[in-house]
């Protein structure tokens, strides 16, 4: 029992402290949520094969236009986000 609880405690400490030593950029907390939101948008824009295949159809959303929109809206580096996505 003691071994079990010690094991759990060590695992919890490692899990909790891991973000402090992670290699991901230490983004400001104020942009963190927007960043996650952007990543989801980029994921949709870049990885949707269907959207790419139908890109020429009238009325469809263009990945490039989404990027442009994000650039204007948030003034962030989109390339970095694309890498993470």
């Amino acid at each position: 029992m003691i071994f079990f609880i010690l094991l759990l405690a060590v695992a919890a400490v490692i899990t909790v402290l891991a973000p402090l030593f992670s290699e991901a950029p230490n983004l400001p907390i104020r942009f963190a949520a927007e960043r996650e939101h952007l990543q989801r948008l980029m994921h949709t824009a870049n990885l949707s094969n269907e959207m790419k295949a139908n890109a020429d159809r009238p009325g469809s959303i263009k990945p490039s236009s989404v990027k442009q929109q994000l650039r204007e809206q948030f003034n962030l580096e989109i390339d970095e986000l694309e890498d993470e996505a």
């Binding site: 991901a24 400001p28 104020r30």
Partner: peptide
């Protein structure tokens, strides 16, 4: 500090509280 790293660590600790 406006730090996302600290935020993530604290968030995980909060989840660990619920677990324990």
């Amino acid at each position: 500090q406006d730090s996302y790293r600290f935020y993530r660590s604290a968030r995980r600790a909060s989840q660990a509280v619920f677990f324990f």
